[in-house]
């Protein structure tokens, strides 16, 4: 009789432990779900994110799909007739070197303005393009943000350019 009562007690304890485990398991799933929702929400808030940079969603701007083989290290954003390129180079390259090389890649152009971390150029063509380059010196890398737009569209799009600039966080 005692033996039977002991077995029953053991059985109930087993059921209790099992129930508790299940409950814990549910709580775990619930926490996981919460976590992934948060994560998703966070992802949804960004236009682009990596270890080095986070670009918060900005009205009118979207990441441009490109079939170019050179896009790997360059993230391209687009807002109508305005394009933006975000890229990184190692800290070994000086700011002057970066500016000089970028000026070479926009060959037929004139300098409008230049500071230590900024360079503005305009192409000498029938359809002039304005290019504004902003540099951000990080601990390991230098972030380069390039805006390009037809000259006549640049002024009207200045606010959206400033908005995107503000929404870029370098780490």
């Amino acid at each position: 009789m005692r033996y039977r009562a002991g077995l029953m007690l053991l059985f109930f304890m087993f059921l209790f432990v099992l129930g508790a485990c299940q409950n814990n398991g549910n709580e775990g799933t619930h926490l996981d779900k919460e976590k992934s929702t948060e994560q998703k929400q966070e992802e949804n808030n960004y236009l682009y994110e990596s270890e080095a940079v986070k670009v918060t969603k900005t009205l009118g701007w979207q990441q441009q799909d490109s079939s170019s083989k050179y896009v790997e290290e360059n993230i391209i954003f687009q807002n109508g007739n305005v394009k933006a390129v975000l890229t990184f180079v190692s800290k070994e390259k000086s700011l002057d070197e970066i500016k000089s090389e970028l000026k070479s890649s926009f060959r037929n152009s004139e300098k409008i303005d230049e500071t230590e971390k900024y360079l503005s150029l305009i192409s000498n063509r029938k359809e002039s393009i304005r290019i504004d380059i902003y540099l951000h010196r990080g601990e390991e890398q230098t972030g380069i943000l390039i805006f390009m737009a037809p000259f006549e569209d640049y002024k009207t799009n200045q606010t959206s350019i400033e908005e995107l600039k503000k929404n870029i966080q370098y780490f």
């Binding site: 170019s68 790997e72 394009k83 390129v85 970028l102 070479s104 890649s105 380069i144």
Partner: peptide
């Protein structure tokens, strides 16, 4: 390091023209 970026700049300049 900036070569790919220079080619991207070319491509975008062409797109904007």
């Amino acid at each position: 390091e900036l070569y790919d970026t220079s080619r991207i700049i070319e491509e975008l300049e062409y797109e904007l023209t």
